[in-house]
Design a protein around this nucleic acid. Structure first.
Length: 821
RNA sequence: GGGCGAGUGGCGGAACUGGUAUACGCGUUGGACUUAAAAUCCAAUUCCUAUUGUAUAGGAUUGAGGGUUCGAGUCCCUCCUCGCCCACCA
């Protein structure tokens, strides 16, 4: 028998909405809990089965916390700026504004069909001027505090998307979005100074509950290394060459230097280079290579010597040659290195190939055959011989008049984009005043509608009449030719770096959020989303929060997210990633229609641990559906039986097994929700229902005529409450059938009595020499001797004990008896 | 190359601080219901061996090998495989 999920689910969704059951009360004096999902980009494809996975997890936690007495903040919104909508506009001419509104409508309908308990009053889209006004405000906040700047720099450029990209958006040298090669271009661009927070971004990781994996990704990305900056003079010139090294202790072993092909020294000392043509042609070839070819570690090292130039090793005055090679990166350190072939694998390989000197300065290795990077004694280093390595680092740096410094891999965040569908950067360029920030009162700087979407490499805003008319310099009042707006827009990640504050006060047009609300709700208690945001969004948001803390009174805490969980990817049935081109995408709408939202929710939670990657199995869904049907039948039959009140008192003599089982089930489900182990919580409820059905068949009490009378009403109630976060519609329906007027979600989470879960008799396994030979039932709390005595009665145990002496007996209370013979 | 994680039935996966491995679900097989099929319900289901059989007994088993222990999926060592992330970061 199957219940009508379509009817039930629609009915309750409407009712919950009318009653405003999930509205969050800002003035509640209950303890608060902020439970956040990563808001989606509303793509044209609609919801994917990956979305309900994370959303159901947070919904279960939210509903659970509410019943536990918390006031829960559980909002949803739209990350609505971004390239897909703009690319769609280029293809079809449909304005991004229009297509994104449509997509949001679809997303909202789909999400609502899942019965998620969001407070929709707090919904917003980042493309709404009322929202991006504050994105622009954040830009100005950074700008005012010297954390936003425009600079000419080598930047990542995607020729196909016609825009620059942040480092985080370049994956293996390719554009994250379109997979085409990313090239380096010298361009004036806007940056946020994330590097100023490198150390605090690193330190903060210690105090937050993020997956270890994610933390190590962030640490890696920030890439802090301690070392020294050293200066090498260049013979017969005024120039010096600055390098960064993590091994200043090996300075005496530096036998040559290497510059990155982009290094400026080649230009400034061009007239001294004897083989300039050769050098130039080498530089030309390497610059033509793409990122992958250049950073391929398996290829043989290449390089060319700058003949005519010699550097001086500041430690010992030795003159050493200068080379140029593409194994040195221009973007890290100073773009130049001192090469210590004896103690660095890359330098060793290079030195071997080009026959350069290899001088051992740390003993303990075999530098005839390979570079030695381990610990050892300092040798060949004059007065510093025999110092320990850490000490030598400091003293040799001093000796060479260098400086101990720290380097990071993290780069400043490139935030400008030469595209239309983003928040305009609120800056005005004036011929007499230069760069002038738009005054706060003039925000938002609105996106125009009269644009040609075709990307040209310049922002479409540049040629918009609407955008550029009547621009006045806020500083000198000049207008006309000499004044123009910044035409670049911001990376969408700027919009998503602060959205979690906005939910708290989504309609505020005086501030991005009132400080009171931030004080009440932040930091976020639980944040659930995909792992793909490890080094992008999650670093940026942490950066924003720290900036707010340093320069405003809005926040007084370091970290915006207390706990973060990554939901694992749901793969297609064939074990591959779901993708449109493979035709293996599962549409949640169809699952909801056929099996119901409760079934979809529970199935996704039942598939396996939330964090794990796991394949979809359409056949597996029926297992959940069968379970919910069983619950439905059980409760409806129970309520039918109970209509005859005369049975009520006489037969509230619940079967002992069931009595114990419900305590255990409540305990297990409570514990598992706390740990976010939803799959095992569900199996515990399944086991309980299986037991009820089994017991029902066994009951042979002449007085009991109906099937379910023997179940205590409190047992049924508790089952429905613990099921309700998982299957809200069905639980609510059955709750009403039990005769309740109020929603099940207004109930308190049930307590459990641990004492009641203790069984009087326990099964104890009897092991002989580590092998289970029998099982006995003993009274709980029996003494060891008694259990041994009991065990000896078992035939099979006797057989194995024959003619043998028990050397040792170990009894584990209520579990097992281990006999050694 | 480096870092992190994981290998348990036909499949997804359980197993608390070392204590009865394979819970729960799918699938499969058999049965009930049905004119029949689907759906549903009931039962069996790690593998091997023995007994005609119910049932029982014995053995093996958590990627491979070794170790610690009365006892190891869990702890330690060596190795293999897979996944993810980073990748010439000086």
């Amino acid at each position: 028998m199957s219940y009508n999920h379509q009817e039930i689910e629609k009915k309750w969704q409407d009712k919950w909405e009318v009653e405003g059951l999930y509205k969050t009360d800002d003035n509640s004096d209950k303890p608060r809990y902020y439970c956040l999902d990563m808001f989606p980009y509303p793509s044209g494809a609609g919801l994917h089965v990956g979305h309900p996975e994370g959303y159901t997890a947070t919904d279960i936690v939210s509903r659970y916390k509410r019943m536990k007495g918390f006031e829960v903040m559980h909002p949803m919104g739209w990350d609505a700026f971004g390239l897909p909508a703009e690319n769609y506009a280029i293809k079809t001419g449909v304005a991004p504004e229009e297509s994104i509104r449509k997509n949001i409508k679809t997303f909202r309908r789909q999400i609502k069909s899942l019965g998620l308990s969001y407070d929709w009053d707090r919904e917003f889209a980042t493309c709404d001027p009322k929202y991006y006004k504050w994105t622009q405000w954040f830009f100005l906040l950074l700008y005012k505090n010297d954390l936003a700047y425009k600079a000419k720099a080598k930047v990542n450029w995607c020729e196909s998307c016609k825009t620059v990209l942040a480092n985080e958006q370049v994956i293996e040298g390719k554009c994250e979005r379109c997979q085409s090669d990313v090239i380096q271009k010298d361009l004036e661009q806007w940056f946020f100074k994330t590097t100023a927070y490198a150390d605090r971004l690193l330190e903060g990781l210690d105090e937050i509950d993020f997956p270890e994996k994610l933390k190590s990704m962030q640490r890696n990305w920030i890439g802090r290394s301690e070392g020294a900056t050293l200066e090498f003079s260049i013979k017969d010139t005024d120039e010096t060459l600055e390098v960064f090294t993590t091994r200043p202790d090996t300075l005496f072993g530096a036998t040559y230097m290497v510059l990155a092909p982009e290094h400026s020294l080649v230009d400034s000392l061009a007239d001294k280079i004897e083989n300039l043509d050769e050098v130039k042609s080498y530089i030309k070839t390497t610059l033509k290579k793409n990122e992958i070819e250049r950073t391929d570690t398996t290829k043989e090292k290449t390089g060319v010597e700058l003949k005519g130039l010699m550097a001086t090793n500041p430690a010992n005055g030795r003159e050493i040659p200068i080379w140029i090679a593409d194994y040195v990166l221009s973007g890290y350190g100073t773009g130049a290195i001192m090469a210590v072939p004896a103690h660095d694998e890359r330098d060793y390989e290079f030195a071997k190939k080009f026959n350069l000197d290899i001088v051992e300065v740390i003993s303990g290795g075999d530098i005839e055959n390979e570079a030695y990077v381990g610990e050892g004694q300092i040798v060949n280093s004059g007065e510093f011989n025999d110092l320990d390595i850490e000490k030598a680092k400091v003293e040799i740096t001093n000796h060479a008049k260098g400086e101990l410094t720290v380097q990071y891999k993290l780069r400043d965040w490139l935030v400008s984009r030469q595209r239309y569908w983003g928040a305009p950067i609120p800056i005005i360029h004036c011929t007499s005043c230069g760069e002038v920030p738009v005054p706060e009162k003039d925000l938002p700087v609105k996106l125009p509608t009269d644009v040609d979407f075709k990307p040209t490499g310049e922002s479409p805003l540049k040629s918009s009449e609407e955008f550029n008319k009547d621009v006045v310099c806020p500083k000198c009042g000049q207008s006309g030719e000499g004044v123009r707006r910044e035409a670049d827009t911001m990376d969408t990640f700027v919009c998503s770096s602060w959205y979690f504050y906005r939910y708290l006060d989504a309609r505020n047009d005086q501030e991005f959020c009132s400080p009171d609300k931030i004080k009440k709700w932040m930091p976020v208690d639980l944040y659930v989303g995909g792992a793909e945001h490890a080094v992008g969004h999650l670093v940026y948001s942490r950066f924003f929060n720290k900036v707010l803390k340093d320069y405003t009174d809005y926040v007084d805490f370091e970290e915006p997210f207390t706990k973060l969980v990554n939901q694992g990817l749901i793969l297609a049935e064939d074990g591959r990633k779901m993708s449109k081109s493979l035709g293996n995408v599962i549409n949640p709408d169809e699952v909801v229609e056929e099996y119901g939202a409760d079934t979809l929710r529970m199935y996704e939670m039942f598939m396996g641990p939330l964090e794990d990657q796991k394949p979809w199995d359409t056949k597996g869904i029926v297992g959940i559906k069968r379970f919910l049907d069983k619950v439905y039948v059980f409760v409806t039959q129970y309520t039918e039986d109970r209509k005859d009140q005369s049975f009520k008192e006489a037969h509230e003599k619940e079967n002992d097994q069931v009595k114990i089982a419900i305590e255990k089930t409540v305990q297990k489900v409570t514990h598992d929700i706390e740990e976010m182990k939803f799959n095992t919580a569900i199996s515990a409820m399944m086991e309980f229902i299986n037991l009820v059905y089994k017991t029902k068949d066994e009951i042979e009490d002449p007085v009991i005529e109906s099937e379910m009378q023997w179940i205590a009403s409190s047992t049924v109630a508790r089952l429905l409450i613990i099921l309700s976060p998982f299957a809200p519609h069905l639980s609510e329906e059955l709750w009403q059938k039990l005769g309740h007027q109020e929603s099940v979600f207004k109930e308190s989470w049930p307590e459990f009595d641990e004492a009641l879960t203790v069984e009087e008799e326990v099964e104890v396994a009897v092991q002989i020499n580590g092998k289970v030979r029998g099982k006995i039932m003993v009274k709980a709390g029996s003494a060891e001797e008694e259990v041994v005595k009991e065990a000896k009665q078992v035939e099979n145990v006797q057989k194995h004990l024959e003619d043998k002496k028990i050397k040792k007996a170990i009894y584990v209370e209520g579990r097992l008896l281990s006999l050694v013979v």
